[in-house]
Structure formats: structure tokens, C-alpha cells
Nucleic acid binder design. Sequence first.
DNA 1: GAAATAGTCAAGTATACTTGACCAACATTC
DNA 2: GAATGTTGGTCAAGTATACTTGACTATTTC
Lengths: 160, 160
Amino acid sequence: MSSPPEQFAARFEAEKRASMAQLLMRCARLVNERGLALVREHLGVPLRASHTALFPHIDLEGTRLTDLARRVGITKQAAGQLVGELEQMGVVERSPDPEDGRAKRIRFIREGPRSVLQGLAVLREVEAQLEAQLGKSRMRSLHGSLLELLAVLENPDHAP
Amino acid sequence: MSSPPEQFAARFEAEKRASMAQLLMRCARLVNERGLALVREHLGVPLRASHTALFPHIDLEGTRLTDLARRVGITKQAAGQLVGELEQMGVVERSPDPEDGRAKRIRFIREGPRSVLQGLAVLREVEAQLEAQLGKSRMRSLHGSLLELLAVLENPDHAP
DNA sequence: GAAATAGTCAAGTATACTTGACCAACATTC
DNA sequence: GAATGTTGGTCAAGTATACTTGACTATTTC
């Protein structure tokens, strides 16, 4: 505990270099900012990170608000607010659930300037930039590793 | 633009699978939450993501508040608030800059239960868990790729 | 009909910032 | 070496975000 400064420095630097959590957070922060800025600029939509956090949980067939909220881990009220904003932006739509009169289904708008595909196309621009700088194989490796990581993170019992 | 549903579905799924930005953000969110929760639990410190965003920019020799703020991209007042909280938690300390009577240097507390090393040790626990599930080579590959990615993100003219 | 469920409305809280005003210590200039 | 401008930091107040809790209505399920 009372190690000399040089030893502390060495250990600190080693830990810092090794810390994947920090690395991941920094990379995500930067990619995140870049992507959102580009989407806002190109599509003219005030999209924020809290909105994009919903995206992976919105199914093609439509997802009910309560389900969405549960999957994301927030209250239905919070989810409702974000969905309301996305609806106003023209990114998603709410339509009545044919199987349940109380419920509504939230799904992506398929066409038009603010459709998901437009958004994803913009994101691909970011990724193309990165790929140009990282190289194709590095990029593929990173992508694969992230997929594995996500599987592990979302399913604690995952064995690759 | 007016493609049939199946085509939309196929394209959407393909884009979604390919979207590294989304992947990165999701992974980071999960790792982030897990890490912070563990640190709070083990060290009893109400550390938040905004605090950890400062860490990579605090040098061993100490960093001045203004520099820290500029590097992170926030105002000195905002940085001051976060540093104040970290100081209260016993994670960093402010000491007068010997070369400038106005300035103070912010540096990590080296010893004690809330020192960086303790925090990084806790983070290593998370990483060890992940490594156990991902495998050593996947983990190393991911780590290397993230380092490359960070270099690219922080320096636009980087060529690997 | 009673109880649970899907969603909305309203209000409140914590966070992560910002702008503006200010003081003390430097740095420059005449 | 006094006047002036600049820089480092703090105090205070305000704003936008990302939520939360609580109360309520319309359905559905039992």
C-alpha cells in the first residue's frame, strides 16, 4: 500500500492500459457523439442517445410500450416520453394493437426522410470512415468481438 | 423507397447486424453499468459515469482544472463540480501548483480504500469475468481492436 | 363484477451540464 | 513599478435531460 512513487506510476500505467472497461467506454462515447452529430446534421432530427437506446428493442412487427420499457429497464412512463419524441420526429409510429384494445404497437416508420434506413445509412458513413482508417480485417475482428461480448453481457450463462 | 415489407425487413436486419456503432454503444452501456455498480458496491463510493470520463485525462503529475476541462470538452465550472465530488469521495486531491499560484493540480489519491488502484482492481474483476466467458484470445483481440479504434477516433489522421 | 394490465397525464428529482459574475495571481507594457 | 489585461479557479443560478413516483382511464381477463 505504501509503495514508492515509481512503483505506483508503473502499476497505474499498466492497469490503465489494461482496462478494457475504460477503453470501451471512451470508444463508445466518441463513436456515439460522432454518429448522433451526423444524424442530426444530415437528417435534421434532434436525436439523442436515450432515443437510440430504444432502437435495438423495437421489433419489426412492432413492440408494445410496456415490453419496450421492460427490455430497456426503465418505467413505461419514461419510455412513453421517448417514444412520443420519436413519433414527433417521424422516426416511429404508434398504431393500435389488433389483438389488444388497450395496447399500441410501436414500430419504425418505413419510408421517408426520417426512416430508420436513412438513419442507419448515415451511421454506415461513420463506420466506413473508421474502416478506411482501421483496415478491413481489424474492423471485422472488432465487429465479431463486439458481437461475442454483447452475447456474454446480455446472457450471463453464455459460453462461446 | 417504396419497397415491399420483406425487402425492408431483410435490409433492416442486415443493417442492424452490421451496425458497429449500435453494438459499441450497447456493449459500453452494459459494461459501464456493471463496472460502476461493482465499484459502488465494493468501495462504497457514489461514482458515476461523468466522473470516470475525467479519469483518462488526469495525469500522474497532476492536471490543472482548466486543462482537464478542455481535454474533456466541458467548461471549467462543470469540471470543478465533478472534481469537487471526487475530492469528497477521497478519489482525487487538489494541491497548489508550485509553478503557478493561481492554479491547483488535480491528481489521484495514491493510497487508501478509495484510491484509483482499488478502483481499477474492481474493474479488473469485471474484465476477468468477461475473459472467462469470451476466452483469452477473443479478449486480447477485442482489446487490441479497441486500442486501435481509440487511436483513430482521437486522432483523425491516424493510419495503422 | 373484480382484479390485473396497457397506456397517458402530471409533477417531482437527480444529473450534467451551461452562462455570468467575481477574485486572486500572473504577464505585459509603458 | 503601477496600470492593464489575461488566466486559473470558485460561487451562484439557470437549463435540458433522463429519468422517477403517483394518480387516473380504458380494456381485458378471470
